[in-house]
Design a protein around this nucleic acid. Sequence first.
DNA 1: TCTTTAATTCATCATTTGATGAGTATGGTA
DNA 2: TACCATACTCATCAAATGATGAATTAAAGA
Lengths: 217, 217
Amino acid sequence: MSAKTGRPKGDSDARQRLIAAALALFGNQSFNNVSTRQLAREAGVDAALIRYYFGSKLGLFEQMLREMLEPMLERLRAQPQAAFPSDLTGLMQTYYSIMAPNPNLPRLVVRVLQEDEGTEPFRILMTLFGEVMALSRQWLGKVLLNSGRLRPGVEPELARLSFTSLMVFPLIAPQVLIRQFGISLDADFLPTLIQHNVQVMEKGLFLPEDADMRTLS
Amino acid sequence: MSAKTGRPKGDSDARQRLIAAALALFGNQSFNNVSTRQLAREAGVDAALIRYYFGSKLGLFEQMLREMLEPMLERLRAQPQAAFPSDLTGLMQTYYSIMAPNPNLPRLVVRVLQEDEGTEPFRILMTLFGEVMALSRQWLGKVLLNSGRLRPGVEPELARLSFTSLMVFPLIAPQVLIRQFGISLDADFLPTLIQHNVQVMEKGLFLPEDADMRTLS
DNA sequence: TCTTTAATTCATCATTTGATGAGTATGGTA
DNA sequence: TACCATACTCATCAAATGATGAATTAAAGA
């Protein structure tokens, strides 16, 4: 019979499981609404391990974010331009491929950003996610503006907003709403969504590809 | 000197102030994250009054939602068609005019819908907001589909999704993001946003107004 | 005026929360 | 083998939370 107490035999993935549980739970509920006991239960682990590995609940939160965002950041920072397509379709595909590995993250980020700005989780998130925002903004700007095809009269900032709305909303919308649209956001569906969004933006924000620039005001 | 305890002289708006506090706080934090003491402090009122007027914290939540959504529902239910324009601009203007009175509501709704679906606040919200969703869907369907101008190849459900993304995202996006776009969502700005969104959808989803229908497949 | 009802404060309770320290067993190393 | 760091469990604490009932005062009605 195995001992209840003391170090368990063999290897264990308690730490990993806590990180996974944190992503799962913080992805769907706000920081304060998730209890350490819940996290431990979800991970199948004693609650005191949170302190052991991460110092505190906030420590677990921070470490989880770090491990989720780091790969994303590395990919965005590398940006040898070549790897970052400058056409809308390529932009959206790359974007979704960066986000796809952890579908809980967008909801988590948006929820935390909405919490009172003075709060600790907010500061932690901003430290890590601020750079993601900045790099994305830069990249998006390149695609939208440098293409030189924005329809005259279309404010660049509003174009950014539209792009973000079309891309982000489906990722953060509550399931009840998503279901109402008769769609599901699994990998199968993504290409369809991307194609649709590209169409909307191509015709909605840009001049026809072959348009003569001299027709501008 | 006024007595600390007992019924206060003259009229008081304690009940009203609690409702207002509830909208303000539940608008920015999740249900469990807002304490009765916080609500009371925000309203400048003793916490026991929550029980007195609403039975419980959940009762206050429900009553607040009821009072916020009822006017909205009445307006949507009336729908003498005439009052509900069938052009995109009119649709968006009416929509925003319905939402404008309480800018906290969209965030609140989306947050509650995202919380675990088994929860009490969720059920309460769905009872009231379900009808809002259904009526909006109906109305939107009329405008999008019955116009007969959807570009061929554009899935109606995706058109709905795009519309909702463009309309709702700006209302629920965290302030940090909104600021990043260099815009603010006050009344001054709404017309600009509406005009932009109409443009995007007109050109992105619809056939040119004067298009000859015979060019369709 | 007397009595009942309405509106409020206050002290307090059981429960849940995050954190903590003491204790226990395993693994690697000298 | 002796030893110490590693990986865990468990009981428990102080703080915060929602709820509650008793007490207090004002207003309204008879």
